[in-house]
């Protein structure tokens, strides 16, 4: 039988985007250590409902670490203390009986709080909309094996494409920068042959959209540490390089006014 834990939670509660918020203390009693962090919150919420208190809103969906919906600061760390693990895959056996757990939503000016622990991450979609695609309308594709892609290149693109868009990189960054998110998408597409035609245009548009919402990179490295997919900061360097290239050797300027 699993062990049971008694915990003290300090949870950020906020009724709406412009409502004032504060930490509230809850006692999570008799939590099985096989439960995931989010299941622990489920148990607390069930008890809240029983006592007539409005349950805590927290972001979650797939609970298998791939959809990117979940994400809160747990004791000052994005997604909690387990490296390379989203909050939904963090299990209570990593905590000890009697622990106090502080739970706070992602904080960034670009991520306004919707309610309690839920924030609005839509600027990340705006960055993708600005150029995070290969323009290949349905029906225009050539045979998939027409363009060989070296395995190493495909693997590297896949490393970058593994991003789940949870926003932990922004949350962990002291500047609320979205460089890791943006550069991962850029490297995924910029490193592949399919992405070459739009490479510099894409980089320019995505970087400039990103900067409308997010801060600048000061190379702390908190983003990679927080990332549940452990996406490398190296991609940020590649993004910087491609952006400078897009400005200095911008091919679209050749022969044009």
């Amino acid at each position: 039988m699993s062990k049971r834990l008694n915990l003290t939670l300090s949870v950020w509660r906020q009724a709406g985007p412009s409502a004032p918020g504060s930490f509230m203390t809850y006692h999570a009693k008799n939590i099985p250590d096989d439960a995931s962090f989010l299941e622990m919150l489920d148990i607390v919420n069930e008890e809240l409902i029983e006592t007539g208190e409005v349950p805590i809103e927290f972001p979650h969906d797939c609970r298998e670490g791939i959809c990117g919906t979940c994400g809160v600061m747990i004791n000052g760390r994005a997604h909690g203390q387990e490296k390379g693990t989203a909050a939904c895959q963090l299990h209570m056996r990593k905590f000890s009986d009697g622990d106090t757990i502080v739970i706070e939503p992602w904080r960034a000016r670009a991520f306004p709080i919707v309610r309690d622990l839920v924030v609005d991450r839509s600027p990340l979609d705006k960055i993708v909309a600005a150029g995070g695609y290969v323009s290949a309308p349905t029906g225009t594709a050539q045979d998939a094996n027409e363009t060989p892609i070296p395995k190493e290149v495909a693997d590297s693109a896949m490393d970058a494409a593994a991003c789940i868009g949870c926003g932990a990189c922004v949350a962990a960054c002291p500047n609320s920068a979205a460089q890791l998110f943006t550069s991962a998408k850029l490297w995924h597409l910029n490193s592949l042959p399919q992405g070459q035609a739009e490479r510099f245009r894409r980089t320019e548009h995505m970087v400039e959209t990103m900067e409308q919402f997010f801060g600048s990179c000061t190379n702390h490295g908190e983003c990679t540490e927080a990332c549940p997919k452990e996406i490398s900061q190296d991609f940020i360097a590649y993004m910087n390089r491609d952006y400078i290239k897009s400005q200095i050797v911008n091919r679209k300027l050749a022969g044009q006014k």
Partner: peptide, 25 residues
Amino acid sequence: MNLATNFAYESKRDWLAANFASRSM
């Protein structure tokens, strides 16, 4: 710019990668 985009945490942050040098630039 970073002061404008950042929103400070109310709870204590636990820095993992950022070191004293990087945070005190």
